[in-house]
């Protein structure tokens, strides 16, 4: 009886553990971050609002076109078939959003990158080594979720801990 109960508990825990794992999200394109950063392109070159706005922003097709439809990399030279399609058809790439924050909290990239100059890596992990599209939040991000982690860092850095600053 007791053994059966414990067994049931273990099964429940296993199911719970696997269901807690963030699900993978399919991206429309296989984007190679490493290939881009190896060319010494900074994050902010494409995620242009990271320093000055609340949201870093996902680059639009026009941003891609700046390089991928230029003298250096002419359109016929692109190996990715789908990207070629998006550019020729002038369609935006329907990227899936990975990093989500609940509606009641306000996270401003400007405050953290523009003002505090925190390395992107702290939250987003080693994006520069990634050769495939991002399909789930980084380990760093998952670790730092939860208000206590925010507050810990805010206390360490002696910045504002007023609730109203982040909760709206």
């Amino acid at each position: 009886m007791v053994r059966r109960f414990i067994l049931a508990l273990i099964v429940v825990f296993i199911i719970y553990y696997f269901s807690m794992k963030p699900p993978e999200i399919k991206q429309p394109l296989n984007f190679n971050h490493k290939a881009h950063t190896d060319l010494l392109i900074e994050c902010i070159a494409c995620h242009r609002d990271a320093e000055s706005q609340r949201e870093a922003g996902i680059p639009n097709i026009e941003t891609c076109e700046l390089c991928h439809n230029s003298k250096n990399i002419p359109l016929w030279n692109i190996t990715s078939h789908s990207l070629k399609g998006y550019i020729t058809e002038k369609r935006q790439i329907p990227w899936e959003r990975i990093y989500k924050i609940k509606d009641h909290t306000l996270f401003s990239h400007r405050r953290h990158i523009g003002i505090a100059r925190i390395d992107c890596r702290v939250c987003h992990g080693a994006v520069k080594e990634m050769t495939e599209s991002i399909i789930r939040p980084s380990i760093e991000f998952s670790k730092q979720r939860g208000m206590n982690n925010c507050v810990d860092c805010h206390k360490k850095e002696r910045v504002v801990t007023d609730c109203l600053m982040c909760h709206r």
Binding site: H104, V160, C163, L164
Partner: peptide
């Protein structure tokens, strides 16, 4: 609800 450093009586809906 608390008095925040700016002197505003704050209300945190999530709490």
């Amino acid at each position: 609800t608390y008095k925040n450093p700016d002197g505003i009586v704050a209300q945190v809906y999530w709490r």
